[in-house]
Design a protein around this nucleic acid. Structure first.
Lengths: 364, 364
DNA sequence: CTGAAAGCGCTAACAC
DNA sequence: GTGTTAGCGCTTTCAG
């Protein structure tokens, strides 16, 4: 029996619910649910009436109720070891754009602090709260990675690799190597690396790979020096970078060039050098990695990566996985390129200009 | 009758629910709910057993179910006209810290695009999804402000004022005025302002106030010029700032100083001047507003504001309102201070150094 | 202090 | 195609 059409006030409370829409349209609530869900077929005349009722009542379904009833959340969880870094903000932004336009919300899980990370992995308090997960980086602990896998949710990794998992990343070893090689080609021999300290959060994949690239490039010098001697550890972020670089330049044996693991650290180094009255690139060259928004502003030479696109790509892969969970995992490698600006120059006048084929320059 | 203690597998599905906890603890689900809620009194021995069961099962309540049942969401909505700006990221971060530590989640509503804004205000699709709202800025349209008020939710405004609403903000007029006055005291007479274009989103409160401060300072010059002549409009953000400043400096009558409405624009201006080979502060001085993370790095003189604290303060006020809805609205004004760095200097050699009592300098 | 039971608003079989 | 009817997991009267 068709419920009577009674366009009165909402049944209870002051907000229209699916019951009110059904009543106004003269159909059952399941029919309303069907036109809302857009999956089941509904007679177009009926759908029309329902749509009009929805319009008239300005009805919007309560997500909490749908989640409870359906198990689907239309939400993607993002787990990161930081929320404040430039890189994180930008990949999240990229992912947000594509996911949002497909009707998905983002739920950020910041595992910066160890206790947050432990709580997260202990309770796995993400299951049934999201439909899929993007992990920005990966914990070092393989058990935690396994825990992530056994969540049973579509999973995309950003900035790291793991067998059997879909991932989007740059080649960190190569990116770091090319940065250091460039400095070497410019004639530098004492090259320090500014790098994140392993602060016990156990989230060091990228850092380790970049140190590896640094070591590989220096090894080609075969000068018998211990490359790790010149690795300076810093807390993450610009301010910490200033401090770390200051400490570095206060040592008796100053390097002639600094490779910073990522641009925020490089920007900090530039600031420190400025404060110490060390000329850049006259006395010390600096190279970074990311192509931070401000890199151009301070003329920082850097290895660029398409951060925003990396995030967007991860979002798209999540959508693919959501559409077909049995999809084969893929490892997408996004390209990096060296952008030569004014913070680096030849250390020795007689050094040959670099002729490496992999050096591509661009600037916007 | 007490349900039998049966520590078997979860009732259904693979996740423990409140039923499983109740069974394990040998109590009813209402008792479990009570210890979860922390409001009702429960016999401490009972509570202990429930807690142990929760521990053993690694149980975490499903928020969607609680929301549906209780109407409380433990979520605060933040509406902003942008998500990417430095200012927005930082106030959101500040609010997040205090709200998160009180168990609240944040739900971001980005009303950057007009259609997003219209949809938002049309459906008010935030009611029953959040317990309170923080509005970063306010729409120009008073009807929309009214709509916000009639949401019936605790509301805190960040960066703008409205009668009867709790707010946290700097004095934009004064901040802008002091920046321009400083330039004037330095001997500048042709001072341009770089400012956000009213892009039709109708969210221009701060911009208008800052232009007002700029005008007031210039009026003190009483040189008969039309101050609006030197207001240059820009899209928001660093890159747009570069373009706008480039356009400005390409005009026949270049200013000797630029006041940028906020630091990202000022940073863009510095970049543009660098590209155009205009010496800073030799030929042109630049002053901003915010004290952006990178302001120190590029030696930008600016009017600092405690952005992170502003966000945290808004969070705290929301919490207060949540605890007592009848609390009287307050308008908190946070202080700003001029930070003199290297991007500004005396325009005329014979100009007196500024002796204004309100000039406070600091640098970290 | 604790248990029973009635929903919160919606989806998903299952009938018709 | 459309309606009926169980729940989804939790909170909250209301008894006791």
């Amino acid at each position: 029996m068709v419920p009577p059409v009674s366009p009165g006030p909402p049944s209870r409370g002051k907000h229209a619910s699916i019951v009110d829409v059904a009543a106004l349209a003269g159909v059952s609530i399941s029919t309303v649910s069907r036109v809302l869900g857009e999956r089941a077929r509904v007679h177009s005349a009926t759908r029309q009436r329902v749509l009009e009722a929805i319009q008239a009542l300005k009805y919007v379904a309560l997500p909490h109720a749908s989640v409870l009833a359906s198990g689907r959340t239309r939400t993607v969880g993002i787990i990161t070891p930081s929320m404040t870094g430039w890189y994180f903000g930008n990949v999240i932004g990229g992912a947000w754009e594509v996911l949002h336009s497909s009707g998905y919300d983002l739920q950020l899980h910041n595992l910066a602090r160890p206790e947050a990370r432990d709580r997260f992995f202990d309770r796995m308090s993400i299951v049934r709260r999201v439909d899929a997960v993007i992990s920005v980086g990966l914990p070092d602990d393989q058990e935690l990675v396994t825990a992530l896998r056994t969540l049973g949710l579509p999973l995309v990794v950003l900035g790291a690799r793991a067998p059997g998992l879909t991932s989007v990343a740059i080649d960190d070893v190569k990116a770091a190597r090319s940065a250091v090689r460039y400095l070497i080609h410019q004639g530098h021999r004492r090259i320090a690396m500014l790098s994140d300290r392993d602060d016990g959060t156990g989230w060091t994949t990228a850092t380790r790979a970049r140190r590896q690239g640094y070591r590989e490039a220096l090894a080609e010098l075969a000068d018998g020096r211990d490359p790790d001697h010149d690795v300076v550890e810093s807390e993450p972020g610009y301010d910490a970078g200033v401090r770390a670089a200051t400490a570095l330049m206060t040592r008796p044996d100053r390097p002639s060039a600094i490779f910073a693991e990522y641009d925020e650290l490089a920007l900090g180094a530039l600031r420190a050098l400025h404060l110490l009255d060390v000329a850049v690139p006259g006395q010390v060259s600096v190279i970074g990695l990311d192509d931070h928004t401000m890199a151009g502003a301070v003329d920082l030479t850097t290895v660029a990566r398409p951060v925003h696109e990396e995030g967007a790509l991860a979002g798209r892969l999540v959508l693919d996985l959501l559409a077909d969970r049995s999809r084969e995992p893929v490892d997408v490698t996004v390209p990096t390129r060296l952008i030569i600006r004014g913070s680096t120059n030849s250390h020795q006048q007689d050094a040959e200009p670099s002729g490496t084929q992999s050096l591509i320059t661009f600037d916007r």
